[in-house]
Design a protein around this nucleic acid. Sequence first.
DNA 1: CTAAGTGCAAAATGTTTGCATACTT
DNA 2: AAGTATGCAAACATTTTGCACTTAG
Lengths: 141, 141
Amino acid sequence: MTTRAKYSTKQKEILLEFFKQNPGVHLTAGDVVNHLKNEGANIGQATIYRNLESLVSDGVIAKFKIDDDSPACFEYISPDEHMGDEEDCYHCKCSSCGKIIHVSCEDVKALQEHFMEEHGFKIDLKRTVFYGLCGDCSSSK
Amino acid sequence: MTTRAKYSTKQKEILLEFFKQNPGVHLTAGDVVNHLKNEGANIGQATIYRNLESLVSDGVIAKFKIDDDSPACFEYISPDEHMGDEEDCYHCKCSSCGKIIHVSCEDVKALQEHFMEEHGFKIDLKRTVFYGLCGDCSSSK
DNA sequence: CTAAGTGCAAAATGTTTGCATACTT
DNA sequence: AAGTATGCAAACATTTTGCACTTAG
């Protein structure tokens, strides 16, 4: 049902290559635009935005928003985790200091399963961001 | 530490009143602008945005983003839940059909406690949105 | 050859800001 | 009177779109 690319183009390859070289890194559309500009790759920003969405629906990169006030982030999904749904890094964002904490734990998976069974809802942990207060901030107030 | 309003103004009162009359409703800044325009209340949109932020830091309304592509939502926090942290409505957003599901369950609270104890992170469930696939969408693909 | 993808610049969206004026205290 | 808040319009940042042109198949 998902609309997919039919042709493979140089631009999309370059884009994907950039993401592959930065596994685990959050990249905004702007980061990508700038990087490619510096590299001398002449790719229009419209193309970049279009291909980012395309790569997202191809399932090779993930899109999420870490913060209301900053642009969307994209991140490469390595083939391993891609296949097995092995997403073991969840994002927690402190509303106070803005810090982003990466958490990996079983309890989140348990909640995911609970939602699946009880509510028929499959949580996408790549996209979900937990907002709240980090330890430093909650103790210092 | 939070910057607070020093004067109380008619505009802010009107704004707050509107939220109080719509408990449990998600209102975007645009909704508020339109509503007040229709009501004949002449409040500039800049003022609305400024007061929304102000009410958020006063802790009387909550701000969150239900979707990357749509504007921020605001919602009144009733004094009860405000005091006792009794936030019993979590938002799940289906990435496929866009539906928003309101869930209220103990398991989420359990996760919240787990995060608190193990990771020192206090999840703000008012602000956090769980992204994923709803039952209808995951079964129909 | 034909459909799909590109690039540019312009539009759209949601939100913020500068500044003169009006209101609170 | 002194300091905030308001309102307008203009600025902003990010993302999307219209359209003529290029490219992949």
